Simulated assay, not measured.
Amino acid sequence: MTPAPVPTLPLVDGILAVLRAAVPEDVVVGCAGVPPGTEPPYVVLYPDTGNEARAEETLDGATPTDLYYQLTCVGSGPEQAIWLANLTTIALLTTMPTVAGQRPRLALREGSQPVQRDDDAGGVYIATAQYLTRTQPL
């Protein structure tokens, strides 16, 4: 019998915990948004819902799950956005999320975009990067 795919919400929570531990206490870390009126610096995690990695199925029939996500680091200036992007990237690439019943791997950075000013959001600066975290059932 093939084990069921792992749920991704606990992995999202684990990634959020890694991010919150990596930034100063006054930096808001949100999932798919932040509360209205939040001032920079802040970071937003935009996760997908996960995909089964069938090609990586283990000998016991377990199928890993790939979670793709974007991290958007927001600063009042470009230096602040880059500073926050550096903190969060280092954390994601070096810290394993803790997830009950799962064995996640370290994140892989899949891509990024140049830092840019977002005039639609009040002239803040954003640094975005995309990541992949693979997990499998224990």
Rank of each mutant, 00 (worst) to 15 (best):
P10R: 08
A121Q: 08
I126R: 05
P47H: 10
D120W: 08
D119E: 07
T94L: 06
C73W: 04
P40R: 15
L59K: 09
L84E: 01
L92I: 10
V23A: 10
L106D: 12
I126V: 12
S112M: 06
S112N: 10
G37Y: 14
I15C: 00
P7A: 08
D26A: 15
P3S: 09
G122E: 00
Q130E: 10
G101E: 14
P47S: 13
P97N: 02
M96S: 06
R117C: 13
G77I: 07
T58G: 07
L132Y: 04
A81C: 11
P104T: 05
Y42C: 15
P35T: 15
Q136L: 07
L16P: 00
P47A: 11
T72H: 08
A4S: 12
Y131C: 02
M1F: 06
E110R: 14
S112I: 01
P64L: 03
V74S: 02
V44T: 04
T38L: 14
V34A: 04
G50L: 10
G75V: 06
V29S: 03
D26R: 14
Y42M: 14
P7Q: 09
V27H: 12
P47G: 10
L84Y: 04
D118Y: 07
G123W: 01
Q70M: 12
D60M: 06
A21R: 11
D13A: 08
G123E: 04
L71K: 07
L108W: 13
A100Y: 03
P40F: 13
A91M: 01
Q80F: 03
A17F: 00
Q102K: 11
D26F: 14
Q102D: 11
L11R: 00
V99H: 04
Q130H: 06
Y69V: 05
L9C: 05
G77Y: 07
A129N: 00
T49Y: 11
T65I: 05
V99N: 04
A85S: 14
D60L: 11
Y42P: 11
T58L: 13
G30C: 13
T63R: 05
P114V: 01
T65V: 13
P35H: 09
M96C: 06
I90N: 11
G50A: 10
P3R: 11
T2H: 03
A32V: 10
T98Y: 06
E25Q: 15
T63K: 02
G14D: 02
W83Y: 14
E25L: 12
V115I: 04
L11K: 00
T38A: 12
L87E: 10
L106F: 13
V27E: 15
A62L: 03
A91C: 04
G101T: 13
L11D: 00
G75T: 09
V18L: 07
G75I: 05
P97H: 02
E57Q: 09
D60R: 13
L9E: 15
V28L: 08
Y46Q: 06
L45F: 04
T133V: 12
A62E: 08
Y69F: 14
N86R: 15
Q116A: 14
P7L: 05
